[in-house]
């Protein structure tokens, strides 16, 4: 077990390292000179040079990289190009907001997906199933940013029930969560439905019925237990989708989260902040997937007890 943990930790570290290195160099090589961009066009060279020195972009690339890595070791993610606040502070300020959004969305989407997916499987080919599948098709085709706009148009502008932007209270969660949920649920529902359908057709389910096990137990225990394992991997999947979706959603709803922070940073060529955002995203992603793998190994007796 210990060996496994070590192996995985190493893998994760390699991935994260690879990602931040990649981003670091892409930013500096592909981009224009941030110092020049921060100054009005036609600015004198000496002043631009001063900006460069302030930002630290006048030094050789590798030196900058080395500096960055050393900083990471000290948990110092650098300072923002715009305004000079420590990146870490900004991240800590915005992370909880994104986290809250993510958690509420995951809970909401998972519940809906389970109910609709299992329900559709149980009612396969009947009306309920067809409706669910139609929803899945439509939702898969819906651009999330468009849905957000439409929702805002209707619920905020027309009906004035919900706020259009900013995080002002619990009601602010509604539209962003719904938008994200519409993006997440189709894949989840499909997977749940498919897995459940298969599980219900398994030999052991038939054998259980033959022993007189009542139908509700067959569904809720026998079939569900077998399905639940692959469903855990869905949580990892969800997080990836939420992460991706959060950029759009936070942008539209002006949600003070990491996504917005990162997007603004990209627009402003704010290298340290971009790197900070990337680091957080990579860490979150990798870490959650690791947890999912652990959970799978712990819960599936076939893996857990393999060594006879």
């Amino acid at each position: 077990m210990l060996v496994y943990l070590l192996k995985r930790s190493l893998q994760m570290a390699v991935v994260v390292f690879g990602v931040i290195t990649l981003v670091f160099f892409i930013l500096r090589i592909a981009s224009g000179d941030p110092a020049r961009l921060m100054n009005p066009p036609g600015q004198q060279e000496e002043i631009v040079q001063l900006t460069r020195e302030r930002l630290g972009t006048d030094r050789p690339l590798l030196v900058q990289f080395g500096d960055y890595l050393l900083g990471l070791a000290r948990l110092d993610l650098g300072t923002s190009f715009h305004g000079g606040q420590p990146v870490l502070d900004e991240i800590l300020r915005t992370l909880p907001n994104t986290a809250m959004l993510a958690i509420v969305t995951i809970v909401f989407s998972s519940t809906i997906a389970l109910i609709l997916g299992i329900g559709a499987a149980l009612q396969a080919d009947k009306l309920f199933d067809r409706i669910v599948l139609v929803y899945v098709s439509l939702a898969l085709a819906t651009p999330s940013f468009w849905l957000a706009i439409v929702l805002v148009l209707y619920f905020s502008v027309q009906l004035r029930w919900l706020p259009a932007i900013d995080l002002v209270g619990p009601q602010s969660f509604v539209l962003p969560v719904v938008t994200l949920a519409v993006a997440l649920t189709p894949v989840l529902i499909r997977t749940v439905r498919q897995s459940f359908l298969e599980a219900l057709g398994d030999d052991h389910v038939r054998a259980a019925r033959a022993r007189g096990i009542p139908e509700h137990r067959v569904i809720l225990i026998h079939a569900l237990k077998v399905t639940s394992l692959p469903l855990i991997t869905l949580i990892g999947l969800q997080l990836g989708l939420i992460l991706a979706g959060s950029y759009v959603v936070e942008y539209i709803f002006n949600w003070p989260g990491i996504g917005k922070l990162t997007l603004d940073a990209v627009a402003g060529r704010n290298f340290p902040m971009i790197q900070g955002g990337v680091l957080v995203a990579a860490l979150a992603f990798v870490f959650v997937n690791f947890l999912v793998d652990l959970a799978y190994a712990a819960l599936d007796p076939r893996i857990r007890l393999s060594a006879r």
């Binding site: 991935v15 981009s31 992460l243 992603f285």
Partner: peptide, 21 residues
Amino acid sequence: GDMQLAFPFILLAIIVLGVIT
């Protein structure tokens, strides 16, 4: 491939495209 999947590709796309004028 695992390494690539371990990271939301859209962010990478945003960053790369973002720095191209």
